[in-house]
Design a protein around this nucleic acid. Structure first.
Length: 574
DNA sequence: GCCGTTTTCGGCCCGACTGTTTTCAGTCG
């Protein structure tokens, strides 16, 4: 079940969309969009706040507070209901078609009664749009194509698909003669768990060779737009946008194209207050027109009176305020990771042998490394007591081959619906680390799911809750639990929550992890590797940790070995 | 509709590309 914050954020966004479609004031639209983001990102649960409390949320004033209050008490907002009555839901859906925005959607509805994607398609084929101002032959073609695209590639993909594609494109463009610098920006640089499109930035004196190379990339299936500085293409999975700017604009362009949009709006507002103008070309003095910063991102932020802000924080989620106060966190990075506490081998469902995984872990420079094959209740894995004990002996012998790495013998237990696990306490006591995860019964009622997870925390042998929500991006929804209660239990019992770094899990998600942080919970970033290459997925987990504002102190697998072992021993590590 | 280092009114982020139009509105990021 979602927090009321998320419900209200969705309603405010819908209200903004409907104002746009009905031709309302553009500034009013922006305010509702801003308020929707503020409410969604507000740390505190807004359920139970009175109007005065609601007005402490940024961008929520008297009018919006009253609407939220009305929703809290009646389950509806009457102004929203009025707009819904005027604009069928299908008209709002029309605006999800690329190139079709609120203005054209309203013209289609008002002039031709079109209220769904299907009726739009029929109308175009029937020639019913002819004579409609603003809808020429080319526009009709684009709309039909947009409808096709919507059905195929309009969806976000997890970062594990987008990142390799982006890195390949960047490498190819960087090799184009005349290309000075090249990097990906956008949500990928911010390490979002899902990616809607890839933004690539390059610098060159002449953009033409880059544009030609870009549109000729083997992955390109279609060129959407092509200008001198901007070019968009589609690939089978995602749209990719390339922007080419001059060398001396690199910092400003990188800041701009990294986003997020909400963060950029804030930085530009700050610029305006300082009588400056911020664009992808630099920071300019409004009075003289002179450019006063642009080469490096640090310079751009400095002109706004801010320290450089890590990309993962740039969501207008409090990072501007923290930067002003000099209170930005020292985020955990890849370099801080000293080990991996969730991995598999061929003994259960992994692909590599224990020795292969151990060698790869040592090659990564890990100070410690835990093998956590599945426990018996995941019946397909055919785990037995003897197999586990035999593996333990083999783990103990690994140290001689890799003296720099401390090898830990662990297991990934299965939480049954009551929070019980595969083995009795005396057997669990023999493991160095026990991860416990939900692998079945994903749809328990909220209270029961909450009790299941809290009971896992209360088991003194369980030190880490694996992939806590059980979500699989695009395939399985997160389980429904009272997360505040689960987080409180983790903090009370000293149980770490995993940030599973496998790219289709990324679980805990960043939003929940940040809420857990507020309870004083600690985290383990685990690769959940089932093969040697999967160990490298750790970086996606680090990205999530950064988006959750975690510093190394919050992440147990950045801790020195002795502190980690104390944690695994008594659950506190202090 | 919100907000205040121009503070209770008058502002509100910036620019590229496309299509249909002759100077710009709509869309997108």
């Amino acid at each position: 079940m979602e927090r009321m914050n998320d419900e209200v954020a969705a309603l405010l966004q819908e209200y903004a969309d409907l104002i746009a479609i009905t031709g309302g004031d553009a500034f009013k639209i922006r305010v509702y969009e801003k308020a929707a983001r503020s409410v969604g990102g507000f740390a505190q649960d807004i359920a139970g706040l009175d109007e005065r409390g609601l007005r402490r949320i940024p961008n929520v004033g008297a009018s919006i507070a009253a609407k939220i209050d009305e929703y809290a008490h009646t389950g509806a907002i009457h102004q929203l209901e009025e707009l819904r009555a005027r604009v069928p839901a299908g008209v709002r859906l029309l605006t999800t078609i690329p190139t079709l925005g609120p203005k054209k959607a309203m013209v289609l509805y008002r002039e031709r009664g079109i209220d769904s994607v299907e009726s739009l398609e029929r109308a175009i084929h029937a020639g019913a749009l002819q004579g409609l101002p603003g809808f020429g032959a080319r526009t009709e073609e684009n709309l039909l194509h947009g409808i096709q695209v919507l059905g195929k590639t309009g969806r976000r993909v997890h970062i594990g698909l987008a990142m390799p594609l982006a890195e390949d494109i960047v490498a190819r463009l960087a090799a184009v003669p005349g290309c000075d610098r090249c990097a990906y920006a956008g949500s990928l640089r911010r390490m979002k768990d899902t990616i809607g499109d890839i933004d690539v930035l390059a610098t060159a004196d002449d953009s033409a060779p880059l544009m030609s190379a870009f549109t000729a990339l083997p992955c390109v299936t279609e060129v959407v737009a092509r200008g001198e500085t901007k070019c968009s293409v589609r690939t089978p999975t995602l749209q990719v946008d390339l922007r080419v700017v001059r060398r001396d604009s690199w910092g400003a362009a990188l800041q701009y194209f990294t986003g997020s949009k909400a963060h950029n709006i804030r930085t530009r507002e700050i610029a305006v207050h300082r009588k400056l103008k911020l664009s992808e070309y630099g920071v300019f003095d409004v009075n003289t027109g002179a450019r006063i910063a642009s080469a490096r991102e640090e310079d751009v932020y400095a002109m706004l009176g801010l320290p450089w802000i890590p990309p993962a924080l740039r969501e207008d989620g409090g990072e501007i305020e923290a930067a002003v106060l000099g209170e930005l966190p020292r985020l955990a990075t890849d370099a801080d990771i000293r080990g991996d506490l969730h991995t598999h081998t061929r003994l259960s469902d992994g692909l590599a042998t224990l020795e292969e995984m151990a060698a790869a872990a040592a090659a990564r420079g890990y100070a410690y490394y835990a093998v956590t094959d599945h426990a018996p209740n995941l019946y397909m894995q055919r785990m037995t007591d003897d197999k586990a004990l035999d593996q333990r002996e083999r783990v103990r012998r690994l140290g001689s081959a890799h003296p720099g790495t401390r090898f830990l013998h662990g297991t990934e237990l299965n939480l049954d619906p009551d929070g019980e696990v595969d083995w009795p306490p005396e057997f669990l006591a023999g493991f160095d680390v026990c991860v416990a995860s939900v692998h079945s019964h994903f749809t328990l009622p909220r209270a029961r799911m909450t009790r299941r997870l809290v009971r896992a925390c209360e088991n003194p042998h369980i030190k880490i809750i694996g992939h806590p929500t059980g979500r699989v991006i695009g395939r399985r929804e997160p389980v429904d639990a009272d997360w505040e209660e689960v987080f409180a239990a983790c903090a009370r019992t000293g149980t770490a929550l995993e940030i599973d770094a496998f790219p289709d899990r990324l679980d805990l998600p960043a939003g929940l992890a940040r809420r857990a942080l507020g309870h004083g919970v600690v985290f383990s970033i685990g690769s959940d590797a089932h093969a040697v290459p999967h160990l490298a997925n750790m970086r996606y987990g680090v990205g999530i940790a950064q988006r959750a504002w975690l510093d190394p102190g919050h992440v147990i697998n950045t801790w020195p070995p002795d502190r980690l072992l104390r944690f695994l021993g008594d659950g506190r590590g202090r």
